[in-house]
């Protein structure tokens, strides 16, 4: 199997059970480069569990996920996949710029300052680069977390509830960034309750009790019944 034939994210028979309760139930899902997929569903549907499994933060009970052909959680998959969690996870002792520098260094990335400045300006964080994000409000910490997820190289981007805590301008800016990222060739999967965002996606997957009950173009009229 060559890496080229397996680019993007491929989940097969993916199951995650906590005791007797299945958070994900034999899910099959593929997301190809250039796709912007919205993962929707009510609370507890399994969206976050799926993203955490794909990021290698959880171990599947059965089945598996491959990122660009590599098992989720492996060094190669971690190199290819960027995960932005729903709760910003930030170091307590580094400023925004120091965070960016460290993440860029760990990924062996050169020439990051220019792109960092662009992201900082887009998300209106340019004047806070020397501040400690641990002292930020929820929205500003979320923006910092987004920048850290976007600054590093990746071919698959997993984003969990990225719009929570963002002001309207931030939400619009983030939407444009995600659209541009998919346009640039990355496979982007975003778990969200933001129905307005669906219009900008190329595909929508609805999860219900750990299973995909809808997987097609984002059509609000067809999706709405699953979210009631």
């Amino acid at each position: 199997m060559t890496a080229d034939s397996t680019l993007g994210l491929h989940a097969r028979d993916l199951t995650k059970a906590y005791d007797e309760i299945a958070a994900l139930d034999a899910l099959d899902l593929s997301v190809h480069p250039g796709e912007l997929v919205a993962l929707v569903g009510s609370n507890g549907a399994g969206k976050s569990t799926f993203l955490r499994l794909a990021a290698g933060l959880l171990e599947p009970s059965a089945g598996g996920v491959r990122i660009d052909g590599y098992a989720a959680g492996s060094i190669e998959a971690r190199d290819a996949c960027s995960y932005i969690g729903d709760q910003p996870s930030l170091y307590g002792d580094l400023s925004v710029r120091e965070h960016i520098e460290y993440v860029a260094n760990v990924h062996g990335l050169g020439g990051w300052p220019t792109y960092a400045d662009t992201l900082l300006a887009t998300l209106s964080l340019g004047d806070r680069v020397d501040d400690l994000p641990v002292r930020f409000s929820r929205g500003l910490r979320q923006k910092t977390s987004l920048i850290l997820g976007l600054i590093r190289p990746f071919s698959v981007l997993l984003v969990d509830e990225p719009f929570v805590g963002l002001d309207p301008a931030g939400q619009d800016a983030l939407t444009e960034i995600l659209v541009a990222t998919a346009g640039g060739g990355a496979a982007v999967i975003t778990a969200t309750h933001q129905l307005a965002f669906l219009e900008r996606t190329t595909r929508c997957v609805v999860l219900d009790d750990g299973s995909a009950v809808y997987d097609d173009a984002p059509d609000l009229a067809r999706i709405a019944p699953f979210l009631e």
């Binding site: 990021a55 060094i75 190199d79 996949c81 995960y83 002792d93 990924h107």
Partner: peptide, 13 residues
């Protein structure tokens, strides 16, 4: 700090 925020090192290659 790395140990306190395991999600971060878990994403590093």
């Amino acid at each position: 700090e790395e140990a306190d925020h395991p999600e971060r090192p878990a994403g590093y290659p």
